[in-house]
């Protein structure tokens, strides 16, 4: 990787599929992301983990161009998000939060909209839309408004909208939240096959068993910084644990405590 800081903005030429250099985001006095450096290779299934408020969503938003960094920059492949956002957006898919969808479009219309805005041909749009709806078991509900979908259905249609243009890099923030086990397994299989084809997935979740199952590499954020980064096996080895959940708790320094509150456990009060 070559980094040249002679210009006003940092110019980066990187072989990484996803990268960030000195990324900082402040909200007033609070620092949400603190000088974060990140490199994710093509074809990786990367788990970006952290406690609530650790800065995962803020980081993803800065990489995809939805939130301007206070300092530093980020990008996809050789393109700097903050120099050529449109080029970056052509290459990525972002799973929208379930309440950020167009509730008054039908599932089919939402997918057509996403495809049309990505410049897919009309015929290809219809083919891909129907295939995705079929695969995700949404065909019968294709003409229902998204606002009438259940939480799991929203997640599925949102996922379909984020992959309909076959992005090189897919950003998934909590993709399995509220999804039933059958649909979750379906989505897992879809995503694993997707990375097999060379695509990169950046994945943020709290379901540690899924992280362990899916991710090839994990980065754990603590207070806006990347505290530890390794493969699943490497992470367990470095933390002296046997699974990602324990490794995560150890890495973030989580104080589990005894759960003891005197008045709560005393029936006479």
């Amino acid at each position: 990787m070559i980094s040249d800081t002679s210009d006003d903005a940092v110019t980066v030429v990187s072989p990484s599929a996803v990268w960030a250099r000195g990324l900082v985001r402040k909200f007033g006095r609070d620092i949400a992301v603190d000088h974060l450096d990140l490199d994710i290779a093509a074809g990786e299934f990367y788990g970006l983990l952290g406690q609530n408020g650790a800065g995962k969503t803020t980081t993803i938003k800065m990489i995809v161009g939805l939130l301007r960094p206070t300092e530093g920059t980020a990008g996809i492949g050789e393109v700097d998000t903050w120099k050529d956002p449109i080029a970056v957006k052509r290459r990525i898919g972002v799973l929208p939060e379930e309440f950020n969808l167009y509730e008054r479009l039908t599932g089919a219309e939402l997918l057509d909209f996403a495809a049309g805005m990505h410049g897919l041909e009309r015929g290809e749009t219809i083919d891909r839309r129907n295939e995705l709806l079929e695969l995700l078991d949404l065909s019968d509900d294709a003409t229902k408004l998204v606002g009438d979908y259940s939480r799991g259905m929203r997640k599925k249609v949102a996922l379909a909208a984020s992959i309909i243009h076959r992005p090189d890099v897919l950003f998934l923030d909590e993709p399995f939240e509220g999804v039933d086990p059958v649909s979750a397994r379906l989505i897992q299989n879809l995503l694993m096959r997707y990375t097999d084809s060379g695509a990169t997935i950046v994945f943020s979740a709290h379901e540690m068993h899924l992280v362990q199952r899916l991710c090839t590499r994990i980065g754990i954020m603590v207070r806006g910084r990347l505290a530890i980064e390794d493969t699943v096996e490497g992470l367990c080895e470095r933390t002296g644990t046997h699974n990602v959940e324990d490794a995560f708790i150890k890495a973030v320094g989580g104080d589990i405590g005894s759960g003891e509150i005197e008045w709560l456990h005393n029936s006479s009060n």
Partner: peptide
């Protein structure tokens, strides 16, 4: 509610 249109395409 269901829409009569299949999609936007």
């Amino acid at each position: 509610k269901r829409s009569r249109s299949a999609g936007l395409a």
